[in-house]
Design a protein around this nucleic acid. Structure first.
Lengths: 193, 193
DNA sequence: CAAATGACTATTTTGTCGTTTTGGTCAATT
DNA sequence: AATTGACCAAAACGACAAAATAGTCATTTG
């Protein structure tokens, strides 16, 4: 066995949490998936919560990778921010674990699920804010308060990806970009003179 | 007694629902508040659900009044839309019943509460869309799709009035307007030439 | 006698308590 | 020394009883 114990357990846990959510996965189940005894898990992780946090950290890493990759591409600020956010939320939407956690928060009020989602949300907001600040420094964006702007853009995307799709056909990546461009970026005001 | 039976019951119900939400108010309680027998309620309303819907209709009426009043003032489109939405959401936020209903939806998944809130939300979206269409006709706004723009603006306000306040000090009416103006109306793009 | 009523019934909600499951430990095993 | 799974206390579940509530209807009332 070349992979070490910790990684093996972590992968098993990632799968289990992804399939069944936080409450839905038992430590015994993770142990079975990882082909280790239950006690072994407790030699690597203090308790179930810490195991879960380790898994979440991996996911935050994935998100970071996505953000870094997109933000280093050579595009105009606007498109960058859009692409970064869109891909992040797409990943978030597709990732079974995050879906399960969101459902868990609505059904039981699992504390772990709540703070996990908050952590992910805060991470996205922070990354977004940095991207915007970058645009401001380059003189490409006119922004009074980067935190407010990051919040605005984030909520707008969430609204379209989550709420809009509850009653209307989903917007494509390009349509989302149009909305973003027309509203946030250029504004709906008709310019006189 | 000059007020008729139906109105008396409706007022009592409005108070009761406002104080305790849908699940929290019992028909017996409404009867006592209205100083009528429980059976009397069932001569005017088919069941608890219909009584509740009658109360909700009154509230939608209030909202309509607010919208009409603001929209007939002589101001530029932007300010109108802002003011209409802000006052509507302010009313919504202050009205005990709507607060209780929102909480109810989060705790139990009361069907009545869900559809009531959806109804209110749809009403606001429709009114907003009409206000925007008006601005477009007058050549004051450049909008591709009034439904999408209404949705965008509405969600933005909700985000600031509900989510933002969970972690940051609330924005004043003027600050809200600034955000609205900077992002949706003028856009954050820096204009060259 | 038509409208109003509250005691009554059927249904839903809440509380309880014994059973099962699960997170975490630790003495036995490798 | 590292690993393990039987074991234990605590939490979750669920079946059932008790309480609360929506809705009905025979009786009362103005």
């Amino acid at each position: 066995m070349i992979t070490n114990k910790r990684v093996t357990i972590l992968n098993a846990a990632k799968n289990a949490f992804s399939l069944f959510g936080y409450k839905g996965t038992t430590v015994a189940h993770v142990a079975k998936l990882a082909h280790v005894g239950k006690g072994t898990i407790y030699t690597e992780f203090k308790n179930k919560e810490q195991l879960f946090e380790a898994v979440m950290d991996e996911i935050l890493n994935d998100l970071d990778t996505i953000f870094q990759r997109v933000l280093h591409q050579n595009e105009r600020s606007l498109l960058k921010v859009h692409r970064a956010l869109y891909e992040t939320l797409q990943y978030r939407k597709e990732h079974q674990l995050l879906i399960h956690l969101t459902e868990e928060v609505n059904i039981h009020g699992t504390q772990e699920a709540v703070s996990a989602i908050q952590k992910v949300e805060q991470f996205i907001l922070d990354s977004l804010e940095r991207a915007i600040a970058q645009g401001v420094e380059q003189g490409r964006l006119h922004v009074v308060n980067t935190e407010i702007t990051a919040f605005t853009i984030y909520k707008l995307y969430i609204a379209f990806i989550v709420d809009w799709e509850e009653k209307k056909p989903p917007l494509s990546k390009e349509e989302m970009f149009q909305v973003f461009e027309n509203h946030i970026f250029y504004g709906i005001a008709v310019r006189s003179s």
